[in-house]
Design a protein around this nucleic acid. Structure first.
Lengths: 222, 222
DNA sequence: AACTCAATCTTGACGCCGTCAAAATTTGGT
DNA sequence: ACCAAATTTTGACGGCGTCAAGATTGAGTT
């Protein structure tokens, strides 16, 4: 086969600089593949995701990813791990912007949860709605557990104890997580037509009022 | 090609009677395909579902389904519609077994929701976690709306008004649905390891206590 | 500076997938 | 008995994931 010196001058020319940064053959292909995979996921969804599509996006042959990711599952696992880190950070960033009291911090973590799902539906779907990644991988489970602990610590601060060690505390965590997670799922699935007017008028407020229902200790004014 | 008179004597022989019921070529292939599709969905999941696999299960050629279902999306839509009818019926059946008061009826519908998800994770996943079926199809949306109305009427009975016409009522519906749906999703995704002990000891009770958190009007004893 | 070798990438192949078109088969009505 | 329509099969096409083999490159050694 003839060597074509202009192989890099195609539609990927703008990415050439980034790809040549590292010391290898075509630059940091692993990172380029991850970026291409995220775009593929966004455009095609988990169900339409294809490894050959990712390779095409990155401007390499269909078998090039094999040296950086064992198979499609491995690539999707790395992508889910990336998603979990961003997800955890979204919750923590939201808390940084909120007042330093237990109630506000708890609600902020819930808002971060739902807003991450709305801003990154494809990654959220990969983390919670797919069976293709290996969720037992530590690259995924570590940041995912850290995100879970944000929620747990929110409940802990509100209750003044360690909720994980008491059945009642675990029930509070279960209810809070379920509500926030269900809200996120239904929102990105577009199943909340009945509340579309409320969401259009004041999306954050509508979500916030729902999250307040998840507050432990009968958070309502009794 | 040689005609093989023993084509029906393979592993599908036991199904022959059912397939010959109706008046067509090989019996009621449409129903046989739907049954095969459900089994394929259960064994392979939405992401591993294949039309050729369904045809193989039904004992017909790979192109046979085309005359009964336009394409894979069409078959999955019919399957989602079937799931929605069973889902609605699961909620209604649960209500029939519960006391005739608003609170018990509301909780029963929620239990029906979650228990359907646990008993039929593949169908539940198809209805809520996939983008492959056409959810705008009336075959799906009609029973799905009816299931939604079971929840709405539960809230209506507890509140004594039509919750859909008031923002406050819609907020109650949103919170209740989110909690129940999130609980179902997290349960079938196996993400509730922290509460596994509680679920193992008393699964229905653990689920029930979570659902009680979704009761409108501060359902707790204030 | 030439060589070696491992890492990286490409090419080609295989079987499976969904879908289309054409041929074969069966059924029901005449 | 025959015909037209419905049903099913066969075969083909391009796309998919993955494996094996060959080509290319970069880094280290002498």
């Amino acid at each position: 086969m003839v060597w074509r010196p202009d192989r890099r001058d195609g539609p990927m020319a703008s990415d050439t600089a980034r790809r040549q940064r590292a010391g290898y053959h075509h630059g940091d292909l692993r990172a380029a593949l991850l970026a291409a995979a995220e775009q593929e996921l966004i455009e095609k969804g988990v169900e339409g995701f294809s490894l050959r599509g990712v390779a095409k996006r990155a401007g390499v042959s269909h078998a090039a990813p094999a040296h950086h990711f064992r198979d499609t599952k491995d690539l999707l696992t790395a992508l889910a791990a990336l998603a979990a880190r961003r997800f955890r950070d979204a919750m923590l960033d939201r808390q940084l912007q909120a007042p330093r009291n237990a109630r506000s911090q708890f609600i902020a973590s819930g808002l971060g949860y739902v807003e991450f799902a709305l801003a990154n539906p494809a990654l959220f779907d990969l983390m919670f709605g797919s069976k293709r990644p290996d969720f037992a991988s530590e690259d995924f489970s570590t940041p995912a557990s850290e995100a879970f602990m944000v929620l747990v610590e929110g409940v802990a601060a509100l209750r003044g104890d360690d909720p994980l060690t008491l059945a009642e505390g675990r029930a509070e965590i279960l209810a809070a997580w379920s509500l926030v997670h269900g809200l996120a799922e239904l929102l990105i699935a577009g199943r909340l037509a009945f509340a579309e007017a409320d969401l259009a008028a004041d999306r954050e407020g509508t979500i916030l009022r729902a999250i307040e229902r998840a507050l432990p200790l009968g958070g309502k004014t009794c």
